[in-house]
C-alpha cells in the first residue's frame, strides 16, 4: 500500500523551496535550557485558575506529543528525502513543545517531582490509534489531518493561552512554539498542495480504499470526541468557542490558497466537518458530545500498555546518564 499512496514527485513540485525551509529549521533550533524557568511571574496566575489550567495544559502537551507521533509516521511517507528530513525535525519539535509545556506546568507548581500528568481517555484512544494505524496511513490522509490539528492548536489554543495567562515566561515559551508552528503550517499546506497535484484517479482510489479501511473509520471515531473534549475544556475555561471556530475556518482559508489542495477528497471532508464543528447549533454536537460522554465509559482495561514513545516526555532541560521508563531522557 505504502508505495502506491505516496505523492508523485515527478509531477508534483512543491510550492516552496524545501531545501531552504530545512536549512531555516536547522538554524532556528532552541532548547529548554535557553529559558530561565525560575524567572519571576508565577504569581501572576490566579490560584482558582490553576486546576483548569493544569487540565488544559496536560491535554495540550499530550496533543503535541500525539502530533509528534503523526510527523514520525509522515517522515516514512514523505515524497522526497528533504521533506522526510523536515518531518524528522517536526517530530522532534512537537516533542520539544510538549517538553516545554511540561516545564511550564512544573514551574507553576502543578507537578510533583517526577510527575507526568495523566492523559485523558480520548488521548489514550488517539495514542492507541496512532500506534496501530498511523504508519500504514497514506500521506494523503496524514497530510490532511495533521494540518487541521496544527491550525486548531496554533490558531485557537495558543492564542487563548496568551490572552489568559500573564506569566512572561509562558509568553516567551509560546513565542518560540508559535514560530515553530508557523513553519509547520507552511510546510503542511505546501505538501497538501503537492498531494492534490496527484492524478485525480489516484486520489480517488486512495480515498475510497481508505474510507473503507478500519484504520480510518476508527480514526474518525477517535477524532470526533477528542476535538469536542478540547472544545468543551476551552469553553469551561472561558474561551469563546468562536475563537476555536475561527481557527478551523483558517484551515479552509489556507487550503484554498493552494492551487491543487481542493482536489484532495479528505480535505473536502474535513472542511465540511469543520463547518459543522463551527456551528454551535449544529446537531453534530449532540452526536459528538455523547461520544465524549460514552468514551468516559470506555473500559480502561481494553487499552494496550502505553507505548514507550509516549513515556519520553520530560520537563528537565538537561539530562545526564540514561534513565529509562516514564520521564525518561
Amino acid at each position: 500500500m505504502a508505495t502506491s499512496t505516496q505523492a508523485q514527485p515527478s509531477t508534483a513540485q512543491p510550492s516552496m523551496n524545501m531545501e531552504d525551509m530545512l536549512q531555516k529549521i536547522k538554524d532556528r533550533q532552541w532548547a529548554l535550557a535557553d529559558i530561565d524557568w525560575d524567572a519571576p511571574g508565577v504569581e501572576k496566575i490566579p490560584e482558582d485558575f490553576k486546576p483548569k489550567l493544569k487540565a488544559f495544559m496536560a491535554d495540550l502537551c499530550w496533543i503535541e506529543n500525539v502530533g509528534a507521533r503523526g510527523f514520525a509516521a509522515m517522515a516514512k511517507k514523505a515524497p522526497n528525502d528533504t521533506i522526510a528530513e523536515i518531518y524528522r525535525y517536526f517530530h522532534a519539535e512537537e516533542q520539544r513543545h510538549a517538553n516545554a509545556e511540561l516545564a511550564l506546568l512544573k514551574r507553576w507548581g502543578m507537578l510533583e517531582d517526577g510527575e507526568i500528568p495523566e492523559p485523558s481517555v480520548n488521548i489514550r484512544m488517539a495514542i492507541e490509534w496512532l500506534d496501530t494505524y498511523a504508519d500504514d496511513m497514506p500521506l494523503s490522509v496524514l497530510g490532511t489531518v495533521i494540518p487541521m490539528l496544527e491550525v486548531a492548536l496554533d490558531g485557537a489554543l495558543l492564542k487563548f493561552l496568551l490572552e489568559e495567562v500573564h506569566d512572561p515566561v509562558c509568553h516567551q515559551v509560546f513565542e518560540k512554539i508559535n514560530n515553530d508552528e508557523s513553519r509547520h503550517i507552511a510546510v503542511d499546506f505546501a505538501v497538501l498542495d503537492m498531494i492534490g497535484h496527484a492524478k485525480a484517479r489516484k486520489l480517488a482510489i486512495d480515498f475510497v480504499s481508505n474510507v473503507a479501511s478500519p484504520g480510518l473509520i476508527i480514526g474518525m471515531l477517535m477524532y470526533v470526541p477528542l476535538l469536542n473534549r478540547m472544545r468543551n475544556n476551552l469553553v469551561d475555561m472561558g474561551l469563546q468557542p468562536e475563537k476555536l471556530y475561527r481557527a478551523m475556518e483558517r484551515f479552509e482559508k489556507l487550503g484554498r490558497r493552494g492551487e491543487y489542495t481542493h482536489r484532495v477528497p479528505l480535505f473536502q471532508v474535513l472542511r465540511v466537518h469543520s463547518k459543522m464543528v463551527v456551528d454551535p447549533k449544529h446537531p453534530y454536537h449532540l452526536l459528538a458530545n455523547s461520544m465524549v460522554t460514552l468514551s468516559e465509559y470506555y473500559p480502561r482495561a481494553l487499552f494496550r500498555p502505553i507505548p514507550t514513545w509516549f513515556k519520553e516526555l520530560t520537563y528537565e532541560p538537561v539530562t545526564k546518564g540514561v534513565k529509562k521508563g516514564m520521564n525518561a531522557a
Binding site: 533550533q29 522532534a92 516533542q95 532541560p317 538537561v318 539530562t319 545526564k320
Partner: peptide, 10 residues
C-alpha cells in the same frame, strides 16, 4: 549534545 526535542545531553 543538544537534540531537537529541546534537551541538553551532558
Amino acid at each position: 549534545i543538544q537534540t531537537s526535542d529541546g534537551l541538553q545531553h551532558e
